[in-house]
Every structure is written in C-alpha cells, then in structure tokens.
C-alpha cells in the first residue's frame, strides 16, 4: 500500500510537486497500478541464457570531433532561458555569507 507520504517522497525525488488536493486520488491510482504490476513478484528467476544472440555486441566509434567546433553553439544558446554570451546563466548555488 502506498501512502500519501510515500507519493510525496517520490515526487520530491523526481523533482515534481503534487498539489495537496490531488494527492489522495493520485495515491489511490498509484496503488491500483502497483497492485497490477505486483503480479510479477510471483515470477521465478529468468530462464538460463540461450545461445548467444547476434544483437549483443559493442558499438564503438573512433574518438574524434563529430562536427566542427561551434557548429551548433548559437542554435543551442538561442534555447537558453538566460545567457551571458555563449554561456548558460543559472542561479548561484554556493553563497558566501
């Protein structure tokens, strides 16, 4: 059983806020979904791996510049909520008091 406190805790972990008015409904719906997926708990361990499948392989590329430096800088910077030149401007995290 999920409690409203559990849902609040999860929301905090996920950087989301659930308004108090929606919390009870949200918790009830959440519980119903967990009860449904809970049927998996009865399952045993997965079957032993069969013969090696062709899709299990590493995909590597050579190190190197994938495109000319700065090719996308202006396009990306245009999306910044706040910028200083080509730099992304965010709140100061550490304060000196």
């Amino acid at each position: 059983m999920a409690t409203t406190d559990d849902v609040k805790k999860l929301a905090a972990l996920a950087r989301i806020s659930i308004p108090d008015g929606e919390l009870a409904t949200f918790t009830a719906e959440f519980d119903a979904i967990l009860a449904y997926v809970g049927q998996l708990e009865a399952l045993g361990p997965p079957p032993a791996p069969a013969a090696e499948k062709p899709e299990l392989r590493n995909v590597l590329r050579a190190d190197g510049a994938p495109h000319a430096p700065g090719a996308y800088t202006e396009k990306l910077a245009e999306q910044f909520p706040a910028r200083e030149g080509d730099a992304l401007l965010v709140k100061q995290i550490i304060t000196y008091e």
Binding site: A14, I16, I18, E22, F30, V90
Partner: peptide
C-alpha cells in the same frame, strides 16, 4: 527552479509515470 519547471511543464499522466518509474 527544477521543481517549478517540471511541475508546470508536465501533465498529469507524465507525472504519474515519472513517479512510477522513480518507485
């Protein structure tokens, strides 16, 4: 900033699935 942006930006179903995934 994170919490407000994500709470305003995501609809109910998206929030639900993010919480399920986090769980």
């Amino acid at each position: 900033d994170y919490v407000l942006s994500r709470t305003e930006g995501f609809g109910e179903e998206t929030r639900r699935r993010i919480l399920l995934g986090t769980f």
